[in-house]
Design a protein around this nucleic acid. Sequence first.
DNA 1: AGCACGCCGACT
DNA 2: GTCGGCGTGCTC
Length: 754
Amino acid sequence: VVAEVIVDIGHSNVDRIFEYAVPEGMTLCAGMHVLIPFGGGNRMTEGFVVGLSETSAYPAEKLKKVTRVLEPYSIFTQEQLEIARWIKETCHCLLVDALRLMIPAQMRGGRVHEKTVRTVTRALTLEETREAIDSLTTASGGCRAPVQRAVLEILSGSDCPIAVSDLNQMAPGASGALAAMEKKGWVLIGDQNVYRRPYQALDRRQEPPQATPAQERVISAVTGALETGGEFLLRGVTGSGKTEVYLRCIQSCIERGRTAIMLVPEISLTPQTVERFRGRFGDRVAVLHSRLSYGERFDEWRRIRMGKVQVVVGARSAVFAPFERLGLIVIDEEHEASYSSDKTPRYDAREVAKKRCELCGGVLLMGSATPSLESYYRAERGEYQLLTLRERINRQPLPAVQLVDMRQELAGGNRSIFSASLYRAIRECLHKGQQAILFLNRRGYSTFVSCRGCGEVLRCDRCDVSLTYHKSDGTLRCHYCGQSRPVPAVCPQCGKPFLKHFGVGTQQVEEAVNRYFPTARVVRMDYDTTQKKDAHLTLLNAFANREADILIGTQMIAKGLDFPQVTLVGVVAADATLHVPDFRSAERAFQLITQVAGRAGRDEAPGRVIVQTYTPEHPSIRFAASHDYEGFYRYEIGEREKGEFPPFGDFVRFLFVGENDQALQTESAAFAEALRSLLLRFMQERGIGEETLIYLCSCPAPLQYIKGEFRHQVLVKLRRDKESGMLLELMGAFTRSWEGSSLPVFEVNPQNML
DNA sequence: AGCACGCCGACT
DNA sequence: GTCGGCGTGCTC
């Protein structure tokens, strides 16, 4: 028997199977983590057993032996190995890189660290214990070894191991007496693994609310598929109780003895979400996200792998949770860009979830108030079963949205950042003792600083972007590289003292609120105010506990938050997200406005939304204002079809980054030509017409210069064919046949084209 | 990735 | 004459 091993080295030269002999007496299974001799000398490397084989193509006498097994169990399930191979094919990455996604980083490099505590167990029967206690009691009722006696008294209560630290609390000095007691054979001293668990304090049982008939319909559709498998897209308006639907489906899944994964966008993984899951499922939930300590992450992973939990709540990477008998994957806020990874392997958690469900016969349930165009398109074509929740849970209407044309406001002589309507609405809201949210997707004070003498706009010298003024510390900051510097007194171009701020950021909104509503208590939430540890939670709690009347924030306040007292939402400048040079910008703007509007009127009091804009006729704004997802979808899918954008066409982008602009330009142009001839050849071999290649060009990236480096891209646009495997096949053929210099990184349909 | 093997310039 | 530069090539 030979072990098929992938060595834990991230390099394309060694990204293939190496075969090893299994020494006598060693039990190996696929998925195990092993130590192996690799390369010249006596060097050792870690590796992953991806399979076992009876035969070997490699001469048996040259085979080396597996040195030892690093963990006494398979660290990958069979299904995970399958998923890893699928990731390699679809993301065009190394198999090791795919495998590495699935285990905590601590498992590699011998840094596995389990936390143990010293424990004591009773070694005597109850009767013997009583005798021992008596032997320590003198005839007069006194006591010869009071601590030992106290320990025996405690241990007589149970035969479970007790942590020495706990014992010490109950019987001070116990740890000192234990050695003598062990010698007499009275107790056993041992070590026990403990799992470090995040959010321990949150285990409070909560009673589930009654589900509405609409929710019941969705729940029964999903749970009805738990035996057979299925893929669902749930479109539920904001406040329609999607989370309760998820909880019920998960409940039903684990009652059938299967396990469930719940994915949420990273930002939504607030303690509120975790609390809700812990409240419902208690110990049976593990939590996985980037803010966990290494120890916590490793322990949560082990609890999943060892079958100690049935449910996982987590961000993107939790889709790889090492469950067996997986029955359900829920993806909340399905449209969020954070489900697609921004580093290699560039996997999309939605696609991985779909594949996992196919492999294990489980159910995929994706939910959103504003599904991504791509998913809704699939639902329309019957690839996903579409479920809808059209009403809010308490039958409250969706908030009325009023559009305010800021051009008319300006023409009417109002130069402030609040329109008359928004100003009045805030005043009224405060007067009634209710809460308001003001949303603006730009941080800082002003978005750019320009000289009124010569027109110069102050730019970052390391990036091709304008600098943002931050009034709190009087600096100009670059939002791409983070560099900051003081505001110059005079224009660096013409020397005149005519520098002026333009554009509004959250800091300026805060200042305006303080000026116009001096008694209002304000919380501002943006990148700048949430850098300290727990700042996120502290600010949200302050608003939830009504220590503030107005919450001002960027997109981090747009979704998922549930504040019943909020009756007014003001979108200060809806246009901010609209004019980004990216084919998804209209979709993003629609989603953002719809989501933020959904924060209003979630309780009894009706909500109201005021959207300030310079382009009220823009479809993203118009359809968001009328809560018309279908309308927006129809419009935007038409645009995508016209422009052959996804889901009708596909982009592939290769990015070239470097300090020498000229060299990059030459390099990317040469690459573009090599790519073109290869692609055309592959297309010809496969009988794909040339018109499928819509264009292939080398050009500067939309952000040409970031952090002192120039950026060029080679952009390929391909028409999508009926069987969607064409792109995958072409790119696979391309990566396999690429020789010469290392393959430039590339993305397919990137979330961010900048 | 890491390391061995291998062919051409300045040094005790 | 040797020591050493880092350019290919291999690792079960």
